[in-house]
Design a protein around this nucleic acid. Structure first.
Lengths: 345, 345
DNA sequence: TTGTAGGCGTTATCAT
DNA sequence: ATGATAACGCCTACAA
């Protein structure tokens, strides 16, 4: 049988109340002498408080839920690490939940986490979060934050990187290298982040007086295979372009693969860009020019905000926007006049 | 205030005992009629049992701990996914713990998980697990399994892939391609898996009558950087070799990078092999010939075994060995006679 | 400074 | 088929 607070109390000839005060580091309610004695006995008997029992009365479990689409997506491990390290440093553990962007799974996890009385949850989803689902958490008065993605018309804090700006910058970089016909492989239609990035793409084009052509854009799902099919579709379209910007690195990898197979040189013939700066982007040939997101920090800050919320502290603003930055590697070439001519109407 | 079993009981004019029986799907202790009535009220009042309170009496929490070195290592996400999917399918959630192979962190996590009364833990570590630490779990009578790595002289179940055999096969593949001078970039000295793989390397050499030369081996830490430094060291050694086999893909990526910088062609000049078949190995140039481990299954089966243990079921044997298999891609070339001659003494 | 006792929300053992 | 009630292990007023 496990040794309980009762055993310690008996052994030390004090009440369990006193023991409780001591293990909770209260600064009143016992003499220094009894404190030492009790502590010694606790050590001798290897007593450790039962978190469950404690949780039942305090309503705190010291665990937070971490909901994301798929840990297998190379974007997430580093984010998760940021969350876990931070949570841990504050005495929390994390329950990891993979939803595959499936609303049903999300809902189920919400309920489970609520029933398990987690102290808070960090939520990332590409799917639009329904109010009805949010209610599961809010009714349970469980603090939560949105990470990476966000939901409109809500007051829930969210931490993300400025996707529109990131995409804006990399497209501008392309333009400054002489590119004018720029294809775009986007994320899914309806995905909030995908929309933001596309907005950055459009904005950059517009500012340079380049017309946005629907025919030059394709919609993938952030996975390698969709990068492949989008690139193939682009090639077969007969449209002319000197560069293709992808909404994430994985799709860029797929696009790269297609061009390699077709014997089209990157970046000499066509330039390609990624987004996220996942490790993969450093080992493709050529290495991907991409936009770097502070992934670890994204997780870290999300955890910090959540913990503040849990502690009832104020947070400065609902939105925390981290800044992305351009990482120039080898997948973009200057568009020379010669090529320019040959590809003009 | 949350609605409790008491509220339901009152509303339904029954005792909490009856409600309890109903929510736990007992097959006695209530009439069909009251069952329906209670269930209806439960739904109306949106009642959900408090897992904490339940856990306090049942001693079950439906959560399992998952301890691994670093989720950021691309080998793990898929394993974790296998664990999570399986756990979830059986009604369990997972608490993720990153240890960085730090014994102190491991010990701390052991204690936390024990205090949180997790139902079991899956443990992966490169560090030698001390008996004293194991005791934390065994004393708490918490079932656990070893995943990927194992500990000698213990009776703890472990699930792993046959590292010795995997390495044996890939080295044989090299030999069958005419390679005789084969360098080896190993994992850390003392790491159990590293030892197993090295054993496979030695065995293959021996069977083909090739002498094992300490001068041809280096020890890294499974990370890209160590692959780089090991490869550099190998190049500077002046030793002659036509192939280098790496104990994992990440180090192979590092090695590849060094050769690329030096203008040495892979596989024409030197062949390289990886191990693990992490996604990265498909996008290097050339693509890595490597050994594939069933990563998802590793996680899945580990979870299944653990759950059996939790349920008090018998498991067939202490050791479950999954089979690795050779994946031939483009980083190994036939060693032609010409090269052979030039590199012979 | 210390102890008593109630309560947290369940499950489970007895009765009835 | 039901209902009281005692745990489960801890925290926390409230007393002493």
């Amino acid at each position: 049988m496990e040794v309980t607070i009762k055993d310690i109390a008996k052994q030390a000839n004090v009440s369990i109340a006193t023991v409780s005060r001591i293990i909770n580091n209260k600064d009143e309610g016992f003499s220094l002498e009894t404190k030492d004695r009790v502590k010694k006995i606790i050590k001798e008997m290897d007593y450790h408080p039962n978190s469950i029992a404690r949780g039942l009365v305090t309503k705190k479990t010291s665990v937070i839920g971490l909901i994301l689409p798929d840990i297998t997506n190379p974007f997430f491990p580093e984010v998760v690490r940021g969350v876990e390290d931070t949570a841990n440093a504050h005495g929390y553990n994390i329950i990891l939940c993979n939803t595959d962007d499936d609303e049903k799974k999300e809902k189920t996890y919400f309920k489970i986490l609520r029933d398990k009385y987690v102290d808070g949850v960090i939520y990332t989803s590409a799917a639009a979060l329904k109010d009805k689902n949010i209610k599961i958490l809010t009714d349970g008065e469980i603090p939560f934050v949105l990470m990476d993605r966000y939901i409109e018309n809500q007051t829930i804090p969210y931490i993300h990187t400025d996707s529109e700006r990131g995409m804006y910058e990399i497209v501008n970089y392309l333009i400054s290298n002489g590119h004018k016909k720029i294809s775009y492989i986007s994320g899914p239609v309806g995905d909030v982040v995908a929309e933001q990035r596309k907005r950055g793409y459009k904005k950059a084009l517009k500012e340079s007086g380049i017309e946005y052509k629907e025919l030059l854009v394709r919609h993938g799902n952030y996975k390698v295979n969709s990068g492949i099919s989008c690139m193939e579709s682009l090639m077969e379209s007969g449209e002319n372009f000197s560069a293709v910007v992808c909404a994430n690195d994985l799709m860029a990898v797929g696009a790269l693969e297609v061009l390699k197979v077709k014997g089209i040189r990157v970046p000499e013939d066509i330039s390609i860009t990624g987004y996220d700066d996942v490790f993969l982007s450093q080992i493709t040939t050529p290495k991907l020019t991409t936009i770097s997101q502070p992934k670890y920090d994204l997780g870290k800050i999300s955890a910090e905000i959540l913990i503040k919320l849990i502690n009832g502290e104020d947070i400065d603003s609902r939105e925390i926007k981290l800044e992305p930055h351009l990482v120039i590697r080898g997948s973009v070439a200057k568009r020379s006049e010669v090529h320019e001519d040959s590809s003009n109407r």
